[in-house]
Design a protein around this nucleic acid. Structure first.
Lengths: 378, 378
DNA sequence: CTGTTAGCGCATTCAT
DNA sequence: ATGAATGCGCTAACAG
């Protein structure tokens, strides 16, 4: 465990009998260096365990090889999955990712941007409010590439990746209507967010298109389990109880599902249910839950790639603000029709027989290591 | 949108009519500076929008105000929740968090450590293998504080936070035994990990204590849905099918639960189920799922605090390796007894009446936009 | 192909 | 209480 000072380019240079420039060239790919010196310098680098000091590089105007990710919450499965892919994309570009969570508080969003600024090469952000003026302006003046996802940034020249919230909400509502349900309630919290607004719009459009009266019950803040249950109870007890419910967001869907269970209400026989955003176990619940599924990983990958594309276009050190070319990429969500909306449950029956045949095949070492390669994470 | 060069201490100094030293003093708290100059310098800083350049500071030997977090996956709810608290703790210390995911691959773990080294002030790591030699040694030679969590690091002087996996697995198995089940199967993937090993040990101990024969079916890698189903099918079809199943990890629990549903097997009547690690919706499923619940947030908070405690002890710039004082903090998990193990389901009945009273009070505008501000309802 | 040299922006001795 | 000068480690002119 040597506590010696970390070796520098100068140490390497001396030991290799060359100048510091040559060392610098070698660690940067070895342009304009003879194969011989290249090799010998590289050897010395190995011997000394030399690692270039990033701070010094950055000070010289090089990139920090780090990008920032700003999300409302990293514990939220949606953002967690996004972060995972983004991290992978970043690593493929030799970049690290620093994660900031905002809890959807504009003040924290701004604060995070400040602490990220001049420490990262670019920023990926899932803003809480599309029209946050100070945020928009600050991001616009940043001189490093920014890409938004999940929600767009209005009024500024910043590209973003989002899904067709409006369209898919409309389709889901239509589907509910096709089941013959007339009174369809739209429930959710965080009603002020862009995504929620879009979904509400889609719901309303489908209802009006069918000549039905939209019934929307949202709250500005995310609702607790108990709040959701109380709201639901009120609607159920009303003279015109809903025949179906469309939830704007997966936590609402889960809370609603849970409350319906507790109330002893049969889904979908008494009240049908559909939600926006898929969630783990949605297919394992009985009844399984019908949802609009967003292409989460694709969102993350697309946003990250967009950012690195901008980074690639802007030569190092150029302080030039990201040129005009803002684009909104809109990805398509899918309707996953399961049982809670009234569609047939995928025959739950005794599928055991299906696996019986596997029995002999897997009889080897207790199925040990019979791992199918990669990407299992679905 | 000024594209001007970022202001430096020199710019501030000139404009304020003082020397750079004074500016430096001001931005570092203002020791040895008259109140008057302090104020005037501060004003200029505001006017110019001056922000100290971190790279230059780091180059001078200051801290980077950044910590690294290395986890197998950030999409995993357990690590995502940890990350969220850690991020919060870090921010309270003015630090950012860079997240690296390893997919449990030792090579990536090492690679991440290298890319983090000399860019962060400390590292939080959830190692995949407690006894990974190169990893242990590298971490030990790092000269910056390291704290492990979820799994310990063996053979090195590095503190860690973990839960009583052995004990809680034993208790859960005992509970299953108390239900009168005799053949209890222990299932899981990633069998080589410390946490899994500990849980397996606990299960075995409880079984042997009761004079039962342990039956363990694990795989070195995490299993896919289909693999789990196949493994399960084999056991069920065997001459001595299990009466209960203890799953080592939440994904396994979910997969098993799902497979049992598909097989049309009644839980817990035909086969009882219990798992290690709680998960979202475990209480909403019917039957609800009995689990060992780890204090996730507490793990994250404790680990982060441990790291910052070490950071506080080591004065800036000191290259002194973290002194000896490694401690393992062991947090207690809880048994959450729900229905899948055979315990009574919390009466699902028609609790609607409980909420009926809210009806009249909320009868206003057809519930449209009748969003009660925040938490009023409770 | 290779070496010398001058900063990048800041904290810091050492004078004053 | 304040300032001038120095160097952290690296890259990029600019010679050779």
């Amino acid at each position: 465990m040597e506590i010696k000072r970390q070796p520098t380019v100068l140490d390497v240079a001396r030991r290799a009998g060359v100048g510091t420039t040559t060392v610098s060239r070698v660690i940067n790919g070895g342009e304009r260096v003879s194969a011989k010196t290249f090799a010998s310098v590289n050897r010395v680098i190995g011997e000394l365990g030399f690692v270039p000091n990033l701070a010094a590089r950055v000070l010289k105007g090089e990139r920090s090889k780090t990008i920032g990710l700003i999300v409302p919450s990293i514990a939220d499965p949606f953002f967690a999955s996004c972060a995972e892919v983004m991290q992978k994309v970043a690593r493929s570009f030799g970049c690290l990712v620093v994660v900031c969570v905002t809890g959807n508080e504009p003040a924290l969003e701004l604060e995070n941007i400040e602490s990220l600024y001049r420490r990262v090469d670019g920023i990926l952000i899932a803003p809480s409010h599309a029209t946050n003026k100070p945020l928009n302006e600050r991001l616009d003046s940043l001189a490093i590439p920014v890409v938004s996802f999940d929600q767009p940034l209005r009024h500024v020249d910043i590209p973003g990746v989002l899904t067709n919230n409006y369209q898919s909400a409309k389709e889901m509502t239509r589907h509910l209507l096709q089941h013959g349900y007339e009174r369809i309630l739209c429930m959710g919290g965080e009603a002020t967010f862009y995504t929620m607004l879009e979904r509400t719009r889609g719901y309303t459009a489908a209802m009006e298109e069918a000549g039905m009266t939209p019934a929307i019950d949202t709250a500005p803040r995310i609702r607790s389990d108990e709040e959701t249950a109380a709201v639901l109870a009120r609607h159920i007890s009303s003279p015109t109880p809903p025949r179906a419910i469309y939830c704007l967001k997966n936590t609402t869907t889960i809370q609603t599902y849970d409350a319906l269970q507790r109330f002893g209400i049969k889904v979908p026989q008494q009240i049908a249910l559909a939600g926006h955003d898929d969630f783990l176990l949605a297919s394992s619940l009985r009844p399984s839950v019908t949802v609009v599924q967003q292409p989460v990983e694709e969102i993350g990958r697309t946003a990250a790639n967009l950012l690195f594309a901008k980074l690639a276009k802007t030569p190092d050190k150029s302080t030039t603000p990201p040129g005009h070319g803002a684009r909104l990429v809109r990805l398509r969500s899918k309707l996953i029709l399961r049982a809670s909306c009234g569609c047939e449950e995928a025959a739950p029956g005794h599928l055991l027989s299906k696996f019986k045949s596997a029995k002999s095949a897997a009889q080897d070492k207790g199925a040990k290591g019979a791992a199918s390669p990669g990407e299992t994470i679905s």
